[in-house]
Design a protein around this nucleic acid. Sequence first.
RNA 1: CGGGGUGUGGCGCAGUCCGGUAGCGCACUAGUCUGGGGGACUAGUGGUCGGAGGUUCAAAUCCUCUCACCCCGACCA
Length: 578
Amino acid sequence: MRISHLFGRTLRDAPADAELPSHRLLVRGGFIRPLGSGIFSLLPLGWRVTQKVERIIREEMNAIGGQEMLMPVVHPAEIWRETGRYDQIDASLTRFTDRADRDLVLAMTHEEVVTDLARSEISSYRQLPQIIYHLQTKWRDEPRARGGLIRVREFTMKDSYSLDRDEAGMLAAYERHRIAYDRIYRRTGLKFYMVGADTGMMGGKLSEEFMAPSPYGEDIILISPSGDYAANREVATFRRDAPPAEDALPMEDVATPATPTIQALADLLGVPTSRTAKAVFFTGDSGRFIFAVIRGDLEVNETKLRKVTGEGNLTPATTEAIRATGAEPGYASPVGLAARDDLVVVADLSIRDTPNLVAGANRTGFHLRNVNHGRDWTATIVDDIASAEDGFPSPTDGAPLRAERAIEVGNIFALGDRYTSMLGATYLDEQGESRPIQMGSYGIGSGRLVASIVEQNYDDRGIVWPAPVAPFSVYLTWIGKDTDTATFDAAAAIHDDLLAAGVDVLFDDRTERPGVKFADAELIGCPLRLSVSTRTLAEGQAELRARTATESELIPLGDVVTIIQQRIADLMAPFVVS
RNA sequence: CGGGGUGUGGCGCAGUCCGGUAGCGCACUAGUCUGGGGGACUAGUGGUCGGAGGUUCAAAUCCUCUCACCCCGACCA
């Protein structure tokens, strides 16, 4: 490819609104262009990278028996109503109508379609198991798109779906995807963690996420030093301290003026925050009031709280709603609350396990000492609702967990019969019994993966592509006066030779000054840069430099093709997964 | 959805407060010089100042409405 023919150009300045390194560099390098909020075109350079990534994905999906197909972007609302998601999902699901006023949705994922296909195509155990996948455009009307390709509204996703007879089969398919994903990310050169995750809107039983560490990640993961534990903070657990061995003491009032915060209370009474109980209030989707109680040194984890209460969503309660329960904000206490159908009191395990806590008295300026769960009050639900934080002990070995920001680049869900039962996707087993198909769903956003690779591979001059996904392996330039056709011709001949040898080469054939070409070469970030100049040509040589190197080397013109091929093989080697 | 901000040529910006012939840098075109790290000079191309309405002799500038985009938050696979 000659750069003079390449559609798209590099920019010296990034658009003012691009903040993330990947966003700035992909725009500056001429890989992507924005069309609207969260909507991007992939220019030829960006498309080449994407195709290389997608090729790796396809190879690994095929390797686990996946069959590629293609499912529609526009779905009749009917199938989304059947699974209940038409009404469950907020405005991020775009609904519209056609000319006949039929309700349609823009696909944000394809479980419904797969399940619909499964119920019409699969009728016997003999047809199972199956893994099908596609790479398809998805539309999710994010409340706020941001960060270039990291968080977009329109994007391409590889999603695969496993269909199995039983749970064991589903788990085997899940395991195969775990292995395939591990290989995919290693082959693209991405650093990643596999972490336990929340199942969120997908529902289902088991879920893991593949997280690319990046300071700009929107998720926080917790990792144990030994690597034997890693989880999204939404679901991360931690080893609880052994509870103090104390007998329950008599509960008593204590005057605590001007102590609406846990810290003020602990300071006044001279006790650690871990000996206090604090209350946090939410209103659930169902309209119920959620009164959560947790030890003062811990924070409530909303995802966990949602799960244990069965609420789809929680919003912080208003002061009026808090008072309506009989509690006093700042001095709220679960002790003495009147039972109500629409009141759910949730205690964290820390509350159950810690005796003689200081809790509110539901009167401004007063608290209670020596409050004990089970004696003085009883929660509706006792469960783990505490957020794991940086430094907390790992549930596996107690070593301090490390919190790290990360970008979610893929996920795997064992869904079970969540969708198949609702849509009636069943098969007849050997005994002639009708049973629901067990399903799994597995996604990788290819654009987000590309952007995440950039987030992890750049320097102050531009992108440093891992060899397997670079738009071109070699950036070839010629350096000489405009009139130096001999040098240009020599470079053009190398271009032809490399192409003939099957090397991905981008030929900067412009009559730009060297600085301009080198700057573009580094911005675009191909692994190798090969230059032929008036000087090197006179000596029968070309100059080779790796994108990561600070020094160049001279190689004989006659050996260019073999040396380049060898170097590319060397650069690819670290990403070969056996 | 709440808070904040920005819309002026492909990109980056000034001009808006205080109304008076739309500017600068980069990029682009032509030419000359230069020739290994975004070079210099000369001459050019390109903009209904996001849109609509209003005030005014006159609007990028003032007023009203509106659209888009960005940031923070809420939310989210």
